[in-house]
Amino acid sequence: NMTTNERRVIVPADPTLWTQEHVRQWLEWAIKEYSLMEIDTSFFQNMDGKELCKMNKEDFLRATTLYNTEVLLSHLSYLRES
């Protein structure tokens, strides 16, 4: 059983600085953390943090459901504000 610390993704605090690998790690973490289903992860495959942060609700909806979109966008905006 993993502790919270072991599951925590170590990525730069500012999502606009993320590499493609960071985006992948964040997505994998969010899927596990929030038990998200039905995400087309290939949609995010060649995307870095700058591109991710430019995405709006409609962009996310092409890859996943409305619920997942709201979870991911709210977590992303939380990270950008902190």
Results as ranks from 00 to 15, higher is better:
1 N>S: 03
1 N>M: 11
1 N>G: 06
2 M>P: 09
2 M>G: 15
2 M>V: 02
2 M>K: 05
3 T>C: 13
3 T>Y: 06
3 T>K: 15
4 T>L: 11
5 N>P: 12
5 N>E: 11
5 N>H: 10
5 N>C: 13
5 N>M: 08
5 N>Q: 06
6 E>M: 07
6 E>C: 06
6 E>G: 07
7 R>W: 07
7 R>P: 11
7 R>S: 07
7 R>I: 05
8 R>V: 05
9 V>M: 07
9 V>E: 15
9 V>N: 15
10 I>Y: 06
10 I>D: 15
10 I>T: 14
10 I>H: 11
10 I>M: 12
11 V>T: 14
11 V>M: 15
11 V>A: 15
11 V>K: 15
11 V>P: 15
12 P>I: 06
12 P>S: 14
13 A>T: 14
13 A>P: 15
13 A>G: 15
13 A>I: 13
13 A>H: 07
14 D>F: 03
14 D>Q: 15
15 P>S: 02
15 P>L: 08
15 P>G: 00
15 P>T: 03
15 P>Q: 02
15 P>I: 11
15 P>A: 07
16 T>L: 09
17 L>Q: 13
17 L>H: 14
18 W>L: 01
18 W>Q: 01
18 W>M: 02
18 W>V: 00
18 W>D: 01
18 W>N: 01
18 W>T: 00
19 T>L: 05
19 T>C: 05
20 Q>P: 03
20 Q>W: 08
21 E>T: 08
21 E>Y: 14
21 E>H: 15
22 H>Y: 04
22 H>T: 05
22 H>R: 05
22 H>L: 04
23 V>Q: 00
23 V>L: 07
23 V>F: 02
23 V>S: 03
24 R>P: 01
24 R>S: 14
24 R>D: 02
24 R>F: 11
25 Q>L: 09
25 Q>F: 09
25 Q>I: 03
25 Q>R: 12
26 W>C: 02
26 W>P: 00
26 W>K: 01
27 L>Q: 00
27 L>W: 01
27 L>T: 04
27 L>G: 05
28 E>W: 05
28 E>C: 12
28 E>F: 04
28 E>V: 11
28 E>S: 08
29 W>Y: 10
29 W>I: 11
29 W>Q: 14
29 W>H: 11
30 A>F: 05
30 A>T: 10
31 I>K: 10
31 I>S: 13
31 I>Q: 10
31 I>H: 11
31 I>F: 02
31 I>A: 11
32 K>I: 07
32 K>P: 04
32 K>T: 12
32 K>N: 12
32 K>W: 07
32 K>Q: 10
33 E>Y: 05
33 E>S: 06
33 E>T: 05
33 E>N: 04
33 E>H: 06
33 E>M: 04
34 Y>W: 13
34 Y>I: 00
35 S>L: 04
35 S>Q: 09
35 S>Y: 05
35 S>F: 04
36 L>P: 02
36 L>T: 03
36 L>I: 14
36 L>R: 00
36 L>E: 02
36 L>Y: 01
37 M>H: 11
37 M>G: 12
37 M>T: 14
38 E>L: 11
38 E>I: 04
38 E>G: 08
38 E>R: 06
38 E>S: 10
38 E>A: 15
38 E>K: 09
39 I>C: 09
39 I>K: 00
39 I>W: 02
39 I>H: 02
41 T>N: 09
41 T>H: 08
41 T>P: 12
41 T>L: 14
42 S>A: 11
43 F>E: 06
43 F>R: 09
44 F>M: 04
44 F>Q: 00
44 F>P: 01
45 Q>T: 10
45 Q>M: 13
45 Q>K: 11
46 N>C: 07
46 N>T: 14
46 N>I: 04
46 N>G: 09
46 N>R: 14
46 N>W: 08
47 M>A: 07
47 M>G: 01
47 M>P: 02
47 M>S: 03
48 D>R: 05
48 D>W: 01
48 D>G: 08
48 D>C: 04
48 D>T: 11
49 G>C: 01
49 G>I: 03
50 K>H: 13
50 K>S: 11
50 K>A: 12
50 K>I: 09
50 K>V: 07
50 K>L: 08
51 E>Y: 02
51 E>D: 04
52 L>C: 02
52 L>A: 02
52 L>I: 02
53 C>A: 06
53 C>W: 03
53 C>G: 08
54 K>G: 12
54 K>C: 07
55 M>K: 13
55 M>Q: 07
55 M>P: 01
55 M>H: 03
56 N>H: 15
56 N>D: 11
56 N>G: 14
56 N>E: 15
56 N>W: 06
57 K>T: 09
57 K>N: 10
58 E>G: 13
58 E>V: 07
58 E>S: 14
58 E>W: 07
58 E>F: 06
58 E>P: 13
59 D>M: 07
59 D>P: 01
59 D>T: 07
59 D>N: 04
60 F>Q: 00
60 F>L: 08
61 L>F: 05
61 L>N: 04
61 L>T: 11
62 R>W: 04
62 R>G: 12
62 R>N: 11
62 R>T: 08
62 R>H: 10
62 R>K: 14
62 R>A: 07
63 A>P: 00
63 A>R: 11
63 A>G: 13
63 A>I: 05
64 T>R: 01
64 T>Q: 09
65 T>W: 00
65 T>R: 04
65 T>N: 11
66 L>I: 14
66 L>W: 13
66 L>S: 13
66 L>P: 12
67 Y>E: 15
68 N>P: 02
69 T>P: 00
69 T>W: 00
69 T>E: 02
69 T>G: 07
69 T>L: 02
70 E>F: 03
70 E>K: 07
70 E>A: 02
70 E>L: 03
70 E>V: 04
71 V>Q: 11
71 V>S: 07
72 L>Y: 02
72 L>R: 00
72 L>T: 01
73 L>F: 09
73 L>I: 06
73 L>D: 06
73 L>T: 11
74 S>R: 13
74 S>D: 13
74 S>G: 13
76 L>V: 03
76 L>Q: 01
76 L>G: 05
77 S>P: 06
78 Y>F: 08
79 L>S: 15
79 L>F: 02
81 E>D: 09
82 S>P: 08
82 S>F: 09
